[in-house]
Design a protein around this nucleic acid. Structure first.
Lengths: 331, 331
DNA sequence: GGGGAGTGTGAGAGCGCTCTCTGGAAGAAT
DNA sequence: ATTCTTCCAGAGAGCGCTCTCACACTCCCC
């Protein structure tokens, strides 16, 4: 590999000073057109590309941002398309800003310190945290250290930290109302973990609608895994055999609930209608296909990136969710 | 944010020269113990962390490697857990080597040039390409430019480029033999695209086993999407209604084949046994659960990373695949 | 025609670090 | 006691870039 040309070489070839060459490369307007052209030609001929390390050293910018997936998220990485969407969205936006994406999956051992050390030392211009739990201390730590940081998902405790959240409550409300519109009377829910904002808000949405229509909540709590969906469903049927609809707080648990219903001799949607949440790919492959609430994951990624790059005016954004009606709630 | 301490500051505090401080920080043995301790104490007290940009500038190393997902891969990103596994594996290994992972999803517009420009200019120490198509020109370009590069998946044309591949042929053979052991007589296949090494090798594996047992191949070709699985299955049934087993080259197509079989009045596994490939999460949620071939995706990521970091002696590695027997091939 | 004002270019410092080279001290060998 | 090694620490250059500052030049107005 031949040595990379430096700015010095470019300047020499164009017959100008290094400073002027730098100006052209960085798009300064205060350069005479013919000189600019000469420099650009030299850049072209030499195949010059700026050395990022040298640039960073003087500008104190890294031109890269970190996308952090905390350990709990990492574990479900493969099952949850939310993360894939976020990565894609962040990546798109980062690319447009001509910066780099540094991906950090915090392992179990000292992942925090690693991210903290890395981020608080000018290696990145900002950090996007794909945090699942609203109680994650990392965002606060980084923010206090002066690192621009944005979270996916609202913190569970009120805070001034910037975030992008999905309208979980609104999505849940729409899902439950949809069930009511289909004439369902006894609507239960399988809620998610109550230490995650998604779990909390989706349950709140469910409760709000039932309260408005003077119905009784029928709640079982799962942990967003398929298995927990199965056992929660069994429990709901045991508690109240008359159930004719279930709002399940995520698709994964809904996937677990379906076999439980089948085993209990309930037909979906005839006897029991089911709505999930997330719109994972598998949701459209179930029998019957699962009605669910779709989240704009790619858009979330984009907004996260824009926010951390300071291209966004608001610092707390709520993205709309969308009800997707399929076979599991009737035709 | 207060200014980060520099090596100069550390040296001053420890009462030594910058050079010595550097030696200690970089773990040189040729430093007197008491001086080393003094420097380490200063590092501790000041919370010193080396400036990577400055270091890179002089060492010409970037201490980071790029993981590139070419466009076609990016599109299926969310559906395919293979990529999640690779990311996790690469991430783990990179972390252990105390380097950074730069993720690049090449968009449709000029993604190649971007990666090429970025990688050939010392921003990264190596590139891992999660290439789907064996004909991808990027690996060759980078290699020629002197950038350490490793591909996931063997190139379709013989080449000296380093790669980590799955034993697709072996997995296919095991799957087909399994069907034979279950007493199946007419074993068809839904093959994948024949411009991808996975598609080619899996079909070859299928053919090899049938040839050995003097049976006739019954082949339909899909493109690894669910929809193509459905139509390929319909075609197979039209071509030969006596089929009693299908080896499907990936789970996604198998997911599409199942409803086609159901619609044609075939029971699985009673009338037709089905084996997939990949072991995606959804494979265990089908009715009946899908027998399939599992790939060590995380291990693949690890090996890719180790190889590009030059920690691996071999430069072309084949990882074993594993048959996972579930309900779709009988009990 | 002389003194601003404005514009474009170059010189040079310096970002924080590594690494070679030099020098001095201590111990070994003569 | 003198010279030769050996070992460890410091001085200083320089990685490639940006950016401030100074300087040269043109233009214009009084």
């Amino acid at each position: 590999m031949r040595a990379r040309p430096t700015l010095e070489k470019v300047a020499a070839r164009a017959g100008v000073s290094r400073a002027t060459a730098s100006r052209v490369v960085n798009g300064s307007t205060r350069v005479a057109p013919q000189i600019r052209d000469a420099v650009n030609r030299a850049v072209e001929e030499l195949g010059y590309v700026p050395n990022q390390a040298a640039r960073s050293l003087v500008t104190q910018r890294a031109d890269s941002i970190a996308l952090v997936f905390p350990e709990p998220a990492t574990r479900v990485f493969s099952d949850d398309p939310t993360f894939a969407g976020i990565i894609r969205g962040v990546s798109m936006e980062i690319e447009e800003a001509d910066k780099q994406l540094v991906l950090m999956l915090t392992g179990m051992t000292g992942g925090y310190q690693r991210v903290e050390r890395y981020a608080t030392n000018g290696h990145v211009d900002g950090v996007v945290i794909a945090s699942m739990h609203g109680t994650d201390p990392l965002p606060g730590i980084l923010a206090r250290r002066g690192v621009p940081v944005v979270c996916s998902g609202r913190p569970t405790v009120p805070s001034s930290l910037p975030y992008v959240d999905m309208d979980n409550a609104g999505g849940a409300e729409r899902a439950v109302r949809h069930l009511m519109e289909r004439g369902r009377r006894r609507i239960a829910t399988i809620a998610g973990p109550q230490d995650m904002i998604a779990g909390i808000d989706r349950l709140n949405g469910y409760r709000a609608v039932l309260r408005d229509s003077d119905r009784r909540s029928i709640v079982a709590v799962g942990d967003f895994t398929r298995e927990s969906g199965t056992s929660a469903m069994r429990q709901l049927l045991a508690d109240d055999p008359e159930i004719d609809a279930v709002f399940v707080a995520n698709d994964m648990m809904a996937l677990g609930a379906l076999p439980a219903l089948r085993q209990a001799g309930r037909r979906v949607p005839d006897d029991v209608a089911v709505v999930g949440f997330d719109d994972i790919p598998a949701a459209s492959y179930t029998e019957p296909p699962l009605s669910t609430v779709r989240q704009p994951t790619v858009e979330m990624g984009r907004r996260l990136a824009r926010m951390v790059l300071d291209l966004e005016e608001k610092s707390q954004v709520m993205l709309p969710t969308e009800l997707v009606v399929r076979g599991s709630t009737g035709s």
